[in-house]
């Protein structure tokens, strides 16, 4: 709580001193600083959490690195700022961070009223419910009258309330600030079900004594497209964030990987040549080095590699691609043409 208050004070001060960051243009500010300041979550394995060497690892962290690589040619020129779920938008508004890459759902009211814009969706998530198998429940609709544990964050409380209102059922909501208490309450049987984004449920299930005792119910009760956010009215910076993300997706489509990117520089494919800066001058149009595309792939790999490394079936979270597969493989990941 104290931290939240401090951030608010800092944000209020930042706002009252001047809208300096927005006036100068974020790209210039970032270049002058020599580092990208990227807001991530406190500690969410798979999305952003430091490893045992203190290096920030995760899907969201790699999105930050790809932007840094596009700007500086070096994916490690990033300062990661852990942001509190309640004050993450204020941190962005006040200029404390340049971009927010923190499992943040793109919604209408956030887009319209918070003075920020969202980049492309990097992860298609949705809110689900998890129960113990022994409960014998196979659909969320059977959970009327049950107690459901959740975190106060984002819109989970509202989504679950809406869901039960739609089927005209009552339920008991227990809200915890701490993820540990939330999990403990669920595992001890205080609540019949726990609700969160499906990716998060996967990581909660991964730490259970016996993950096979729990199932995630089939219903997805909300759409949660997670996207990076940046300050409104800075079109150039918005383009840089968006195209850094799209480049990751386009690279997967074209089969460019971290390992073969040097080879691909000599590719005959005109699309690949443009993306990696071998021909034409696309990078310059954004105010970036012409090799920006090459630098991004060289430092983090393509979208598929970023996904598999942090969230995929080889990791503790063990997520399948699902809707996050490429469009030509039945998913929703689709990049506009880079030309």
């Amino acid at each position: 709580m104290k931290q939240a208050l401090l951030t608010i004070c800092a944000a209020a001060l930042g706002l009252s001193v001047a809208g300096a960051a927005s006036a100068a243009g974020t790209l210039e500010t970032v270049k002058a600083r020599g580092k990208l300041v990227c807001g991530v979550s406190l500690a969410t394995p798979g999305f952003a959490a430091p490893d045992d060497k203190g290096r920030m690892q995760g899907f969201d962290a790699d999105i930050c690195r790809s932007i840094a690589a596009a700007v500086f040619g070096d994916g490690d020129k990033v300062d990661f700022v852990p942001t509190n779920i309640n004050t993450r938008f204020q941190a962005l508004q006040s200029g404390e961070i340049d971009v927010l890459s923190r499992q943040t759902t793109h919604t209408f009211s956030r887009d319209a009223s918070l003075g920020l814009d969202f980049g492309p969706t990097v992860f298609y998530d949705g809110q689900g419910l998890m129960v113990a198998k022994s409960l014998g429940v196979s659909s969320a609709k059977e959970l009327t009258e049950a107690a459901i544990c959740t975190l106060p964050g984002t819109t989970t409380a509202q989504n679950i309330s809406d869901f039960f209102r739609a089927i005209n059922g009552k339920f008991e909501l227990v809200v915890f600030e701490s993820p540990d208490e939330n999990r403990a309450a669920f595992y001890s049987g205080r609540c019949e079900a726990i609700t969160s984004d499906r990716s998060d449920l996967a990581s909660i299930r991964a730490v259970a004594n016996n993950p096979d005792d729990y199932i995630v119910l089939p219903e997805t009760i909300s759409k949660e497209p997670l996207a990076p956010a940046f300050r409104q009215n800075d079109s150039n910076w918005g383009d840089i964030v968006s195209w850094s993300v799209w480049l990751l997706m386009a690279a997967e489509e074209k089969g460019i990987t971290q390992a073969n990117v040097d080879e691909k520089l000599k590719s005959e494919d005109p699309d690949v040549q443009r993306m990696l800066g071998a021909t034409e001058e696309l990078g310059k149009m954004l105010g970036l080095d012409n090799k920006w595309g090459y630098n991004v792939i060289k430092s983090v790999g393509n979208y598929g590699e970023v996904f598999e490394r942090n969230l995929g079936e080889g990791t503790k979270l063990g997520l399948t691609r699902g809707p996050n597969a490429l469009w030509n493989a039945g998913g929703l990941i689709y990049s506009p043409p880079i030309r």
């Binding site: 706002l15 009252s16 809208g19 508004q93 003075g115 009215n233």
Partner: peptide, 12 residues
């Protein structure tokens, strides 16, 4: 100044 800047950035 805080409310000015909030208004300038279109923040409700």
């Amino acid at each position: 100044t805080a409310s000015d800047n909030l208004a300038k950035q279109n923040i409700a």
